[in-house]
Design a protein around this nucleic acid. Structure first.
Lengths: 297, 297
DNA sequence: TAAAAATACTCCATAGGTATTTTAT
DNA sequence: ATAAAATACCTATGGAGTATTTTTA
């Protein structure tokens, strides 16, 4: 049984004449004749009674024909679905980002896309790097925003920008008058950190040469840390893109010397097929003007 | 797009490995590879991301695969329907009969079939010859019981039996003592007839050489005529098979000389495909012992 | 390096064509 | 006699095979 045979079947059932049905199927009469016979043989029953003046549908044939219409209907649905999916921008791209990027980059990205009337739609998620990596590999996300180092296999990395970390002090902190703080001055000071699993924590520890002292207080998000800083509990580092959202009168922002920071990249699977949609996302990300961030070369 | 391709598609989606999917489809890996590629090309989109360790289904692919399953499901339904219809006795045979046969033959036929535990099931109708003929030609009935003459094209006629007509008199009629009535004696007597359109009416008029006198009273069924005879309104003729149902104390039955009568036949379309079911019906009809009826040669 | 998919090629089944015959009215 | 479907026969597409290459993790 083939879909072509079913199409012939349905046409013959409506035309009730081999010649006319063949014409409507754009094939010769013998072609249609043979196909119908073959179908009847394979099903093991007679679908049509052939008479001098047209053909008659048998009751069994009528049932089969109705079901053949259903099959053809469903293949039609399939083809329409394919036609819809052929538009790369029809479905949203699924984008993930780590907790220290998403809340600060997503708003800018979305407003950028809307302003440009971009056809790209985004489904957004925030999570830890290892979860995003896993979901990317499983095909549950199409692209993720993470910080280097990040080198899993089968993954294409597009560097987006280098982003410095800044120091956040309580408004009444003794260092509030200094223009620049030396990074190594942070040692033995109470630096509030994110919990284990946040790559930002690791980057801060590494780039500022802070040993994992164990007695550091931790917070579950940069916003939480910021509030703890404001309350005078200690100091913390925040990435540059978070500055507008986190800095207010009750905290003081200071640049660090030398510049600790991170490289933010977009990662996607090598074989991901929606190249155009991914290119549009990459372009939009590279166009973003995020505070303190320098486009990667 | 072919059903085979859809089968490969669904198998690959579950196996997520070309080699294993090919094995489950009983084809070689290149065959499956080429078929999937061809399907992707024809749909104009990538359904699978090929990776070193298995393939990944794209979101568009997931939708298409779900729909492919629906299509295959429906073809499966079609094949099951065919398998069911392959049993000639699964569906009832649609049998029609004229008004002067159905009510007297159907009960005997049904009880005969039930007694024999025959697998044949019957859908029954009664109507005029010309309606039955039309419905037979349209394929709305599979076989009809009518009386000769009946010679429409594309129709196979199987003579069943010759059936005499008998005379029905009021219980107090002067002829009640005679053994036999001469058919030509009926002229100028009040013979009650069925209305126009009943072939039995025409047969009575012809075989008894009664002119269509116009002043004959008519009834809508043999049962009605019988009641009119019983009430003394006149006499009438009835076919032999109707005798048990119609003759009682208040009427008298007399044979006629020479024997007027009719030949009852089974008619079906030449090309009707359910030969076995039709043969079973014919056999059952020929086995019937109907009062006064002589099997046709 | 090795596993997996893609490619190259060969073969044959079959869908489709044209010409003709059979069939039943 | 004629219209319609079936049959015969031919061709070419493409589905499926084996052998091999390419890819990339």
């Amino acid at each position: 049984m083939t879909l072509t045979e079913l199409r012939y079947l349905v046409t013959l059932a409506t035309e009730r004449h081999f010649g006319k049905a063949a014409e409507r199927c754009h094939v010769s009469q013998p072609t249609l004749s043979v196909a119908i016979r073959k179908l009847e043989d394979s099903l093991g029953l007679t679908l049509f009674e052939r008479h001098r003046h047209g053909v008659l549908v048998t009751p069994a044939g009528a049932d089969i024909i109705a079901q053949a219409k259903v099959v053809l209907q469903e293949t039609d649905v399939l083809e329409r679905m394919a036609r819809h999916s052929r538009d790369e921008f029809a479905e949203p791209l699924r984008l993930g980002a780590i907790f220290t990027i998403g809340p600060f980059l997503f708003p800018a990205l979305i407003s950028q896309l809307r302003q440009e009337r971009s056809p790209l739609k985004l489904y957004l998620e925030e999570d830890y790097t290892h979860v995003l990596d896993e979901r990317l590999a499983q095909g549950e996300l199409d692209a993720i925003l993470v910080a280097m180092p990040f080198e899993p296999p089968e993954t294409r990395i597009t560097p987006l920008f280098n982003e410095p970390f800044h120091l956040l002090l309580p408004a009444d902190h003794p260092w509030r008058e200094q223009d620049v703080i030396r990074a190594d001055a942070l040692e033995n000071h109470p630096v509030l950190m994110l919990g284990e699993g946040n790559c930002f924590r690791d980057q801060v520890l590494e780039t500022c040469h802070l040993g994992n002292q164990g007695n550091q207080r931790t917070g579950s998000s940069l916003t939480t840390l910021r509030h703890m800083v404001a309350s005078g509990l200690g100091m913390t580092l925040i990435p540059a893109m978070a500055v507008p959202a986190l800095v207010n009168d009750d905290v003081v922002l200071k640049p660090l010397q030398p510049h600790p920071g991170r490289c933010v990249v977009l990662a996607s699977r090598h074989r991901f097929p929606r190249k155009a949609a991914l290119a549009e996302l990459t372009r939009a990300l590279q166009t973003l003007q995020l505070p303190g961030c320098v486009p990667a070369p």
